[in-house]
Design a binder for these strands. Sequence first.
DNA 1: TCCTATATGTGAACAATGTCAACTTACACC
DNA 2: GGTGTAAGTTGACATTGTTCACATATAGGA
Lengths: 186, 186
Amino acid sequence: MSTYTNAPYHHGNLRQALLEAALIILEKEGQNGLGLRDLARAVGVSAAAPYRHFDSRAALLEALAVTGFQRFSAAMEAVASTEPAQPMAAMGKTYVLFALDNANLFRLMFSPELKRDNRPGLRMAADAAFDTLRQAVGGDQRSGRIKALAAWAKVHGLAILLLDGQIALRAGEDTEALIAEIIGGL
Amino acid sequence: MSTYTNAPYHHGNLRQALLEAALIILEKEGQNGLGLRDLARAVGVSAAAPYRHFDSRAALLEALAVTGFQRFSAAMEAVASTEPAQPMAAMGKTYVLFALDNANLFRLMFSPELKRDNRPGLRMAADAAFDTLRQAVGGDQRSGRIKALAAWAKVHGLAILLLDGQIALRAGEDTEALIAEIIGGL
DNA sequence: TCCTATATGTGAACAATGTCAACTTACACC
DNA sequence: GGTGTAAGTTGACATTGTTCACATATAGGA
């Protein structure tokens, strides 16, 4: 399993190298700027090589989205473990900041081109991430469910609108402060 | 300008025909399933013909998004002109239902691939649509702004989460009722 | 230590796509 | 009626995702 050197095969650990390079390209160029050939070139490998590790470009994107959900989940758990005074507000802020800090990865996670129905791995990763949310928010009981869904919608919508530059900041206004104000009433 | 027959040129009114066919294909196949060549084939015209009316595929998509915003705007104004008892709730419901009824068009309107910065036409159409919202909601005064943004985020997020099938309905639960419940507290 | 099965990477090819340039057609208008 | 120009066609190009036949390096048993 774990060897001393981290370069097990021919060219090194290609799968990992591909994912890492892909994340960088994705964040810089966006989902459509991430081509398999460019990616292969960036890693210094032939255009067909990635197919030994991913069935298709879509599968590569799915793998990226899965790691995205894992990071997202980790960020959420980190906040929850803090046991903040206002759990929902704290997690909401983290939610939005994660989206802003990982813009294209976040967009990929919710990309319609990755139909979650056909991708059990992605579905599971997404569900796991949101379960973290649900637990902290207590949306399991019938009473809290509507409130939890409403909070989720608000936070998710805020993230997307900010990402799209749809919410214009006023002069001297701070993004983080605005987020806090909007989320405040949770 | 306006002629008796509505088939001004060679093949008929291509631009309009393209847009109409594109809307149908878009709703059925999604943004990535909408190829220029397929579209041209569907209208019965050569692959290069669309370039007489749209600079690029992106320009075609932009035109589609613009008509999307116009329809959206119209739906909003229609509701507002009703002068409902709860303006925000009524418009919110319309907002979400529009998204569900025009899933792929709605997604296109907010597609990151259409950077609104570089597309004044799209930006204007979007702003016009949201202005309708802002007016009805009264988010111009400093006091109401946060509340208006929060409502917008909530509604937009709800639309997207429902579109993605992320919010699971419980047994015997009605989508529209759930929307009303979640939006209720505006 | 050698041999072989197998995992990994290469190279050349394919079909499909967006796009463009040169050419043709048909309408509008003087 | 002749001509300029808008609208459509044909054929080409580069690029992309993907595949197949081939090459190579590694692992693990003989």
